[in-house]
Structure formats: C-alpha cells, structure tokens
Write a protein that binds this DNA or RNA. Sequence first.
DNA 1: TCTTGTGTATTTTCTCCGGC
DNA 2: GCCGGAGAAAATACACAAGA
Length: 399
Amino acid sequence: MSRCSAYAKKMNSASVEPFSEVDKLHIDLKHSVEAMTDWQPAGGETSARHVLERIESVILGIVTSLSKDEAPVLVLPNRSSWTNVSFDSSVGLQMTSESSVTSVRCDCASSVTKFAQLLKILSVIYKLVQSDSFATKRDIFYNNTRLFGSQTSVDTIVDDISCLLKVSRRALHVLATSKGFISGDLCYMESDGTRISCSSSQAVAVSSNISGIRNIVSSARFVLIVEKDATFQRLLDDDFCAKLSPCIMITGKGVPDLNSRLMVRKLWDTLHIPIFALVDADPHGIEIMSIYKYGSVAMSFEAHSLTVPSVMWLGLLPSDLQRLRVPQDVLLPLTKRDECKLASLLKRPYLSSQPQWKREMELMQQTQVKAEIQSLSAIAPDFLTNIYLPNKLRYKGWI
DNA sequence: TCTTGTGTATTTTCTCCGGC
DNA sequence: GCCGGAGAAAATACACAAGA
C-alpha cells in the first residue's frame, strides 16, 4: 500500500471529530485573551494634531540649536541593534531601550546628506498630515530623486522618522503598496465603504489601509499563513478553504510587508481563532514565520500593533521530512549561508520559550537538509491539500 | 585602538519588460 | 511563449571607513 493511500485510510477511519483539536485550541486562546486583563487590540491611530506637534517639536530643537550657534543634531534610535530590543512573550520583540542611537549631524560630511533628506521628508510628511492626504514612498522618492539617490534611502528614513516620532507609518500618511493576498471565509468593509468578500475563487489583495477596515464577518475556524504565493495559489486551486473547513488563507509572498502583518494582527484581534503558519522547512521559512509571530528588530518599535504571538508552526517541520519519508532527491543540502542563518536564529531571545521549535531547528542542523513545501508533491500530487494539511489539523500536528 | 555608522551583499517572493 | 534582468518589498550579516 502506498504511503499516500495509507494516510488516506487513516483519515477515513479516524473516529475523532474532524478538527476538534483546532476547536479546543480556539477555546484555549479565547480564554487566555479573556484572562489577560491588560490585553488591548492593536492601537488606534495617533491623531493628526499629535503627529504635527511631534514634528514641530523636532524642528523646534533644530531652531534652538541654531539660535545658540550650535550645529543641529537629530538623534535616532538604532533600529538594527539587538541591544535596544527585549523579548516579551505577550508582544514579541519590543524596542524597550534606546541605549544605541545614531546621531545625524549637519556639520559632519558623512551625515549631512542624511540630515537634509530627513528634513525634506519631515516637511513632506507635515504637509501630508496637514492636508489629510496620502503619498507612497515612491511618490516621496520622485519628489526629489537627486536628493534621495535611491528609493532605499527614502524607505529607511520614513521608518526612522516613524521610530523617532513614535507613530505608525500610517499615521505619517505614508503608504506602501500591499503585496499580500487573502482568501477564504471572510467579508469586511473598507474605509471608503466598499464591501469586500474574500470567499470567491480569486484571492483579494490585502488592503493598504488596515486600520480603516470594519464590520469583519467570518465563520472561519482558523487562519493559515502561507509563505509563498505558489503554495497559496495551489491551495486556492484545490479549493482548500471550502473543502476542508471554513478558514482564511493569507500570504505575504515571502518576507511579509507591513500591511500583510497588520492584516494578520487585525484578524487575531477581531476573531481570536487559531493562526497557523505553513512555511518551507528552511532557515528563511522559520525567519518569515518569526516575523509574523515575534516581529523584526527593525520594526520592533511598532511590535505592539504588528505581532501575533499565538501563531503556531503547522509545517513544513524538519521532523515531517523523516516521518513522511520525503524522497531524498527532492531534499536540498544546507548551504554555508543557511547554516549561518540557522545558527543566528538559534540565538534569538524568543527561542528559549519555544523548546519544540528549537528541537526542530537542531534536527535541521543535524540532518543538514532543507525542503520546500512543494517537495511534498513528490509523495503524491495532491498530498499537501488532501493528506498533509487535513492530518496536521486533525491530529494536532502544530508546535 | 575601539566603537560606531554606513554601505553592500544576500535572501525570499513576485511582476514587468525587452530580446530572441 | 520563454528566458533573463531589473526592480520592489521585506529582512539580517558583514566589511570597511570615520571619529573619539
């Protein structure tokens, strides 16, 4: 008997209520949220007045320095330093100190350009907030391409300003094009009143104004975060959401953009249903899943509105590769770079609260192999949709 | 000399565009 | 139509230069 039909037989003969484990998890999560007296949904938007006041206070500091005949300096918290970040199991990676800072001086040749760029973008943001209009980072770049040089510098400075003023990028009236897609048992209303239904066979682009979403209606029993668009499309083609159980699927197409992360957080705040991650069994897949669950260092100052610490790792687990006897020819050897990435992931502060994750990563280190989700099709073309995921959900195969 | 800051490289995903 | 390159969005790691 083939492995595929053996699993199918096991599924059919199972006496347990389908997905009762998912429902149990749902109840546990609801209770844990209710028990958290200090729990609050992702914060509301900072008022426009507030943002304008903070920009004015920065400008006032510069004017004061000039009036004293001193060179103005902008002190930015270092967004790439782990020394400014601490781990809180209920929030994820959070910027708690500003012991490491970057000083952008206007009297220093190496930072005078950045100083000018910061002031230019601050002035653009001030006008946008004042006029209640919005612009994309690309709009800002084309505003003065000679000054900015590349769009990368605009991206970095917008996030630096967001961190400096302690307000979200949305509150600065700066948008980024969403790259994520969502599908499944979900209806909601956009800020402009447009009613969106995600239940059709076509996926819906994740909104670029998540805070404006209201009237969310769903009878989904769980949310499935899918790392890659290719896997997402495959599950969509197989009608995974409708066939298996009412659910919501979302993909951020690789490293997730802010809107996809905000959308997952919005669904968690509203529905309190289990959220599972389906990623490649490689260091980058684990990193992507960690960004949804614990956040990133660079955006740790906004962790309270971006992370969902209840995210569970559903697959593809390194131990699944052995358990399912995935053919050796579809497994890939770990590269030197993968090994470095894995070693750095094992040092992350949140790993101490995830012993099962740690064991899986150590297993990857031992076996020296990685695998993509698509490698499951080597067992059977429909293995992922009809066997792997249903069994994982039925038999509590998440960690 | 050591620390800090900056720039580059690399990874993931996908889309778009031009050439063959 | 297919292929390759560029670009976009997100991330981290590392090398090198500058300043204290």
